[in-house]
Design a protein around this nucleic acid. Structure first.
Length: 374
DNA sequence: GGGCAATACG
DNA sequence: CGTA
DNA sequence: GCCC
């Protein structure tokens, strides 16, 4: 998720470079780059794409060493995000004006501007430990902590991990889950699910979110948001019916429901079920079997799909919350907090009263928080 | 020196 | 702790 | 690592 690049409209991730980018801008233009990602565009590729690619290695390295939530990691993520939102950098004085880019980053940027690369990035890419941790965390259920622990115990490869027999599901579908999906693949998977959804709840509506919506050409998973337009409450129960149907049709393997709020509530104590925050969205993380079509798919492929259900009245919040990127969500919450709101994918709330502001559309969220639509 | 987004749940 |  |  950290590779997600944020943007605002559905066309947010398109190349927005222009001929004027070849002209060197005054440092003041860089000081004008907004501090938070919600106030700037994030084109991809961006004008500083080669630099970003180099710095991204160091960001990954920090993620693997300290976790994505560690300050060392967040500082790199925010700095890279700022660079993504900046015009073409061709001297250090410009970079110096960017918010969130400090002395340490400037040294790296300077090196890149003079040599065209960053030595530490290259070393990191080739380091055995980096490669081992990177590979180990690719297994579903294995995060940074576990990978570091495994490494300390001498584990270095997927083969060694497999022998431990601790992640049966992770390894069962590991191979397919490494293969990224094209946008056409994402759309095809979504359409398979829509057909079944229409059988259990005609009139229900779905949209593809996540990296796909941000314009990524390839995705490692699919985020599918489902609602029932204009009829509050009619979305209730959709998830379990849909899951049962997908299971019955073999579109989800028997062991393919990795997690589901809906299914869980079956064997859950009633009081526990009602304890659930009434705003939290129903969701299921599944393995979807994408049937072969004999043309673009010679065989079935197993894909990670997240299915999320939202009430119509909070559809906008759900769209914003499940589109990302990670950085965008962080910055959005900061803005909400500062303006007396609390934002979650389940809704936008007044911090004082706890009252939920209706957010039928994505623009309702932006409007309430006074964030421009870029 | 404190803060960095946020939270439900298995 | 891991996942979203 | 960067900002307040």
């Amino acid at each position: 998720p950290q590779d997600r690049v944020h943007l605002h409209g559905p066309s947010r991730d398109h190349d927005s470079r222009s001929p004027s980018d070849s002209i060197s801008l005054p440092p003041s233009a860089f000081a004008a780059v907004p501090t938070l990602s919600v106030y700037r565009k994030s084109p991809r590729p961006c004008p500083n794409q080669a630099l970003v690619d180099e710095l991204a290695v160091l960001r990954s390295w920090r993620f693997l060493q300290h976790g994505t939530g560690a300050p060392e990691s967040i500082s790199y993520a925010t700095a890279i995000s700022a660079i993504i939102g900046a015009p073409k950098i061709d001297n250090v004085e410009q970079a110096r004006k960017l918010h969130k880019v400090g002395p340490k980053l400037l040294i790296k940027i300077d090196e890149f501007l003079t040599t065209g690369k960053i030595a530490e990035s290259e070393e990191t890419r080739n380091s055995a430990k980096f490669k081992a941790l990177d590979e180990m965390t690719s297994v579903y259920g294995v995060g940074q902590k576990t990978a570091v622990e495994l490494y300390e115990n001498g584990i270095r490869s997927l083969e060694q991990m497999r022998a431990l027999d601790r992640w049966p599901i992770g390894f069962k579908y590991q191979e397919d889950m490494q293969i990224k999906m094209s946008r056409a693949d994402c759309e095809s998977v979504a359409n398979f699910i829509r057909i079944q959804l229409d059988r259990v709840e005609p009139g229900a509506h779905t949209v593809l979110l996540g990296g796909y919506r941000r314009g990524k050409t390839h995705s490692s998973d699919i985020d599918l948001l489902c609602t029932y337009p204009h009829e509050e409450g009619k979305e209730k129960g959709i998830l379990s019916r849909l899951l049962y149907r997908l299971l019955a049709k073999g579109l989800i393997p028997e062991d393919g429901v990795l997690w589901s709020s809906s299914f869980a509530s079956h064997n859950v104590a009633p009081e526990r079920a009602s304890t659930r925050s009434f705003d939290s969205l129903d969701k299921a993380f599944v393995i979807f079997r994408h049937p072969a079509n004999g043309i673009t798919r010679k065989r079935d492929y197993f894909r990670r799909v997240d299915i999320i259900i939202t009430a119509w009245s909070t559809f906008g919040s759900a769209v914003v919350g499940w589109t990302g990127s990670t950085q965008f969500e962080r910055d959005l919450r900061q803005v909400a907090e500062k303006k007396g709101y609390k934002f979650e994918a389940g809704g936008l709330f007044d911090k004082q009263t706890g009252v939920r502001i209706p957010t039928l559309t994505e623009k309702d969220v932006f409007r309430a928080l006074d964030i421009p639509w870029l």
